[in-house]
Design a binder for these strands. Sequence first.
DNA 1: GTCCAAAACAAACAGTTGTTTTATCCGGAC
DNA 2: GTCCGGATAAAACAACTGTTTGTTTTGGAC
Lengths: 198, 198
Amino acid sequence: MALAPNVETDGKPRLAIMNAAMHLFGKQGFTGTSMRDIAGAVGLLPGSLYAHIASKEALLLDIITDGIERFLAVAEPQVAAAGDPLVRLRNMIAAHVEVVAENPERSQVVFHQWRFLAEDNLPEAIERRSRYEACFAQVVEDGVRSGQMKADLNLRIAVLTILGALNWTPEWFSPAGKLSAREVGESMADALLGGIVA
Amino acid sequence: MALAPNVETDGKPRLAIMNAAMHLFGKQGFTGTSMRDIAGAVGLLPGSLYAHIASKEALLLDIITDGIERFLAVAEPQVAAAGDPLVRLRNMIAAHVEVVAENPERSQVVFHQWRFLAEDNLPEAIERRSRYEACFAQVVEDGVRSGQMKADLNLRIAVLTILGALNWTPEWFSPAGKLSAREVGESMADALLGGIVA
DNA sequence: GTCCAAAACAAACAGTTGTTTTATCCGGAC
DNA sequence: GTCCGGATAAAACAACTGTTTGTTTTGGAC
């Protein structure tokens, strides 16, 4: 085979390793997972992993980078979009839950394991997280300006409240549950946008 | 000195170790923290720790048990109390933030590191977590029954949304910030109870 | 001062960590 | 068939893991 050399085509095994690592990092954490755990999960010896990856940390970086990208990919269009801020925020909430539901373990890695990135990689990961937070802040601000959202509540805290509720979902969402991700997302949007007071 | 032998009076050093462990477990996680880290933080050699604690895991168990107790201690009275469910829920939200603010790192351990408890200790910790969740569910249910809270939204999801937002606070709350814990709690209660829609 | 127990040190334990090295295997090109 | 390059195995590396052991230090009671 051997296509053009510096094309990142690495076939299946690299993906299998990334999936196993994602699964394990999400369940046991980065520091709680050994290369031997990962190797065992994909049916290889620990040393053999290094034919496909550079290091344990590079593996983490790839999982996190790819993971954040998925959240940004569904949120950023809603920021740029014209239209009712209320509808856009509702879409962002529901989309977030759908991304979580698609792979709760990856989300856990994205939300919790970024602390273990090396100093060189940390700033970029943090920057991407801020970008995501800013998406929500922007749409809420749009809503306040249009008069559809309350102007009298602390904007930053309202956004952090929403994001907190969303980031906690991988802790309890089960794909086996009777509610679909979309339904859960809609219910959460109901609670967060309208509150629970009758 | 030597008081009655089986009294659990262990003086200061045990507390110093627990505080250092709390700090480190919260920041680096249980598996990311070594006994040598803890020993270094309290100015001891690693082996010397075992004059005060039974094991690394016993340390984790103590921190978590004590931690959950603090949340239960402020929430359970509000469940038993007679009075406006809306006010009680607001109190529970504000009190939760205050407990987090008092020591965000301990809260991180309580919320995230319980997974690393041994099988023997896990069930009790999980049971206590459920008890805390049940407190919120009960008060929300009271509110729905009294007609003060919406009956048409998914109760379980509403509670998990509230708890998620609350459990995420140690991630961003800073004691150095300009808002006090009480003020943050009030703002979160505003957002969660009343929603953000004008 | 002597004595004693609690606490600390110093050193080691067996096992695990991420990673590297060397050699063997295997499938396709020729 | 031979040859070649990528994937795997096998073994080892130094460093680190939680914990135990034996010894020394400490500080108060007498």
